[in-house]
Amino acid sequence: MYYKILFYLTLMIGTLISISSYSWMGMWIGLEINLLSMIPLISKINNMMASEAALKYFITQTLASSILLLSIIMMSMNNMYNMNSILYFTMIFNTALFTKMGAAPFHFWFPEVMEGLNWTNSLIMLTWQKLAPMVLLLYSTKFFTYLILIIIISMMVSGIMGLNQVSLRKILAYSSINHIGWMLSSMMFMETIWFYYYIIYVIITINIVLIFNMLNIFYLNQLYISMNNNFHIKFFFILNFLSLGGLPPFLGFMPKWLTIQLLTESNMYMLATIMVIMTLMTLYFYMRITFSTILLSKTYTYYYNHNMINNHLIMLINFISIMGLVISTFLFNLI
């Protein structure tokens, strides 16, 4: 247990070193500390799926780090010779960061790694591990055309691939890819909106993962069975899932609202329209899951005992999602 605390600490230190570094080399070192801290947290001796996930994560992140370091070296070598070539190496640099955060079409590793994790590591992968690559994207030169292409592909992949999933971890992984697209679009024009989006996404994801972890469920059939006898758990799960999809009047709608307004004010009408249409696909499988949770009755043996779950704790941590309309309207007026 104590070694986990050490690795959690170095995981946070690596990210903080990366986002606060004054040089690209220091940024790369921070990412490597973060990577080498995450591997022991994922891998387990008695769990083959966790060991496989750790290996996949290590290979992918090492490949991205190698491309990152190569682009940094080439940018520094070409600094005094050809300024135009730096732009191309910056695009390679951004590609490595997209791979590290799991944005489509560089997402191939993300759902597979998520499938082998427990809920604690899944929460870290969905939230904290996205922070450093996104902040570093803010520091680098932005190719709007390339960013828009990544945004549209992320929206399409998350919407289509999430439709036929039965694993809750993979559903949250494709949901994260969808939210990455929204965060990248807000990042293009205003960092403040991106920060609001990231914080709200983290809050909603913590609420959902906490419920799944308390019930110890990983698949949809377990979800329907486990929530059948517990109205409070079912109610708050549905509210948070709809909030994650960005359905008004919940809190998750607020950052999407701000992002759409930001895009329209920047005359990016086509991009905003495509993003809204593609997000409707993800909202469809959110609604399908929530409706099934409401309507399906218990037809299997009840394997879980929820007497130890504190419903008051669930009510407390989900209060902010229920009050999404009031909070989002208040914050929007402040902006």
Rank of each mutant, 00 (worst) to 15 (best):
S140N: 14
I277G: 11
P105Y: 03
S158F: 00
K234P: 06
L325I: 02
A272W: 08
L258D: 04
N118T: 01
N305T: 00
T205Y: 06
L262Q: 02
L55G: 03
T127E: 00
V326D: 10
I73P: 06
Y304I: 05
A64F: 11
Q165L: 11
M227H: 05
H312N: 14
S176F: 11
T279I: 09
F110H: 05
N94P: 00
I322V: 15
S185P: 04
I322D: 02
K170G: 13
H232V: 02
M125A: 10
Y174G: 05
N229S: 03
F89V: 11
S321Y: 10
A104I: 04
I193M: 06
H312L: 13
I206P: 04
T95N: 05
P255W: 05
L280Y: 13
M278H: 00
L131K: 04
M38A: 04
K4R: 14
E115N: 09
T90W: 10
V276H: 04
I217P: 03
N230F: 13
I86C: 01
I193H: 13
G102I: 00
E52T: 00
F253N: 11
Y269N: 09
I17G: 11
S167E: 14
N121K: 07
N307G: 14
S66M: 06
E32D: 10
M287Q: 12
G14R: 03
N311Q: 09
N310Y: 07
N78A: 12
N318Y: 10
M25N: 13
I33N: 07
I199M: 11
L16K: 07
K44N: 15
S185W: 07
I72N: 02
L271M: 12
K298L: 09
F291M: 14
L70S: 00
P255H: 04
N230G: 09
I289D: 08
S122P: 01
P111D: 14
G324D: 09
Q222S: 12
I203D: 01
N267I: 04
Y174T: 02
T299K: 15
E115P: 04
F98I: 06
L296E: 09
A50Q: 08
I225K: 00
F291R: 15
K4I: 11
N34G: 02
E112R: 09
Y57A: 05
F212G: 07
P255Q: 10
K4P: 04
S43C: 13
A104Q: 06
S243I: 06
V135D: 10
Y224P: 01
I67F: 15
L87S: 10
W194F: 15
I42Q: 02
L244R: 10
N228Q: 01
V135F: 15
I177H: 05
L247N: 02
H306F: 06
S21F: 04
K100G: 06
K100L: 05
F189W: 00
L147C: 08
V202N: 11
N178T: 06
I203T: 01
S266F: 05
T192Q: 14
G30Y: 06
N47D: 15
T299H: 10
I45R: 03
M75P: 02
P248M: 00
I314L: 09
L36V: 03
V135P: 09
